[in-house]
Structures are given as structure tokens and as C-alpha cells.
């Protein structure tokens, strides 16, 4: 449920002229709502959007991958699958 609502929030913010980027672990639920920009860290458990507790390395990589989406011109509505081998 929260992975669907988050995209509704994202779209409302984006519609106000502020660029947004989403980290989602539920491609099905988030995909239904078509997010403006999103990444999907593959194989992460719920509660680990950015990685496991105290795994600073993975958390930083996931955050950077999400923020990079802001700098890439793209067709909105896609969720980009990303692999993070350090997870």
C-alpha cells in the first residue's frame, strides 16, 4: 500500500514543478501509478529501501543511483532496475 501511495505523493510534488526521484522495492504497486522517475534496487527486503542497517556503502550507492535519475533526461513513468552487489 505504501509503495502505491508514495507515487501519488511523488506525482503531486512533481506537478508543482519540483523534480522528484523514488526508490521503490515494489515495482508492481509503484508501477501501477507511473512514477516520474524511479529506481528499483533488485532483491532488497522491505524495510531496506537503501540497504541493510549500518551498511553505509550500499546505502550511499543506492542514494546516488536515485539522485542521478534527476540529472538524466528521460521518458517519465519508468522504474529502472538496479543491481547492488554489496547488499
Amino acid at each position: 500500500m505504501c509503495h502505491r501511495t508514495v507515487v501519488t505523493v511523488q506525482r503531486a510534488i512533481e506537478a508543482q514543478g519540483i523534480p522528484t526521484t523514488l526508490i521503490t522495492l515494489d515495482v508492481e504497486q509503484s508501477g501501477l501509478m507511473r512514477p516520474p522517475r524511479a529506481i528499483h534496487p533488485k532483491g532488497f527486503e522491505f524495510g531496506h529501501s537503501l540497504g541493510k542497517p549500518n551498511d553505509k556503502e550500499t546505502q550511499t550507492k543506492v542514494l546516488m543511483a536515485a539522485l542521478e535519475q534527476l540529472t538524466i533526461k528521460q521518458e517519465p513513468g519508468q522504474i529502472h532496475d538496479k543491481e547492488f552487489p554489496t547488499y
Partner: peptide, 20 residues
């Protein structure tokens, strides 16, 4: 709409969203 308004009123240039 209230959350979107909070963002607009802030100094943020962009927003990162997470869902858990």
C-alpha cells in the same frame, strides 16, 4: 495536497521519496 504544499513552501530543489 498538504504535503505537496509543504514541499513548495520549503527551500528544496528536488525530493527523494522512499516507501520503506
Amino acid at each position: 495536497p498538504a504535503v505537496a504544499k509543504e514541499v513548495v513552501r520549503s527551500k528544496a530543489d528536488a525530493v527523494l521519496l522512499t516507501a520503506g
